[in-house]
Design a protein around this nucleic acid. Structure first.
Lengths: 203, 203
DNA sequence: TATTTGACCATAAAACATATTTAGTCAAAT
DNA sequence: ATTTGACTAAATATGTTTTATGGTCAAATA
């Protein structure tokens, strides 16, 4: 009983904090959110945040990780489907953008490439990039085995895919062109997988 | 004689100013360049700059236009070649990035998407985008006619091409990843034209 | 007439000083 | 084990002064 309630409550409080922090970080961003308001919202003193998190940055990282885990979960669902790799790649790309578009704290971290203020999130970003790289690598390999894709160098293809995908993040999410481009994102995804498609008539 | 010398000198001075301005804008950027130093460099008083240009912004525009004209000239050379449209598209893309990489004042204008300070260059940028759109449109049409490309909707394909191309500008030029990505740019260009290639075995 | 000058002004940027807010700490309380 | 809230150091915001700079213009030049 003692174990249960103390164990439960620790996790609950931590989650409550993350929940509250998510609310404020999402609305005001990292720098305009204060630890005070995050604590007040769950009727606690500010100090308690530092019992569960070492710093504001660490709290933000927790929020960001949770946000990206949602995306990861959705993407994993797709990779686990037993559709054709072509379908997989297309769905993966579309889902990626769809859920990433909602991940507003991730959007903020894109500023790390321009402003020094956000360098502390680079590990989380690198982790997500690795995750994605692995998944795309898996899909391309599967497609190669199945004969759908004609790829000499998988790693090189994954590289190019990643470059295009991440380059698009800035216009889509930092310049808020997701809605404007939405109708073309599908065609955009097609460009990518069409180019990988097995083409017998190529020199 | 009077016409010649006065006509000549007007153009010469204007070009001298642009030349000097190019030097300073390229080295220090728009905001850190002063009209004073641009004038001093050609041993003139600051006021004379305002005889030929209405404002600092207009002078910068002149520099930028000249810079982009170099790129336009190179790209036009390629479009005028009578190679296969596939070769054309690839060369066009590579040349575009190669010369744009040297156009440091153009790089600065990319900041217009993030900072209000650069909004005044939007006309020049729009003009360049139109120019490019037309050229790509021309190449794709040519490719369609020749049977190299299998494109239902040219305009839509041009759109996607433009979105990818311009999205890449920020990582390449603002985040200085051109050298890092250089070896993959060619493959990147291939992705684009492969996807447009006539593929007989598509559903 | 066409061009150039440099003193001049208004405004913007830089530099400085001051006040306020906030991240993070910690001894004490629960 | 967890929470509190007073506390500090540092960052941020605010206000003030100084300096630098874009732009003007009447007069000079050629």
């Amino acid at each position: 009983m003692i174990f249960k309630s103390s164990g439960m409550s620790e996790k609950d409080i931590k989650n409550l904090i993350i929940e509250s922090a998510t609310k404020y970080f999402s609305k005001y961003g990292f720098h305009k959110t204060t630890m005070e308001e995050v604590a007040k919202h769950i009727h606690k003193a500010k100090g308690v945040l530092y019992y569960y998190f070492k710093s504001k940055e660490e709290l933000f990282e927790a929020v960001l990780k949770q946000e990206l885990n949602t995306v990861k979960t959705e993407l994993t669902k797709i990779v686990n489907k037993d559709s054709d790799s072509i379908i997989l790649l297309k769905e993966h790309t579309l889902t990626r953008f769809y859920f990433l578009n909602k991940a507003v704290n991730y959007h903020e971290t894109l500023k790390a490439d321009f402003f020094e203020k956000y360098h502390f999130v680079k590990d989380v970003r690198a982790d997500f990039a690795d995750f994605e790289r692995n998944q795309i690598s898996f899909i391309l390999n599967k497609g190669k085995t199945e004969g759908y894709f004609d790829i000499k160098d998988i790693e090189s293809s994954v590289n190019i895919y990643m470059i295009i995908i991440t380059s698009l993040e800035i216009p889509l999410f930092l310049q808020d062109k997701y809605d404007e481009y939405e109708s073309t994102i599908e065609e955009l995804a097609s460009v990518m997988f069409n180019s990988l498609r097995n083409q017998k008539n190529i020199k």
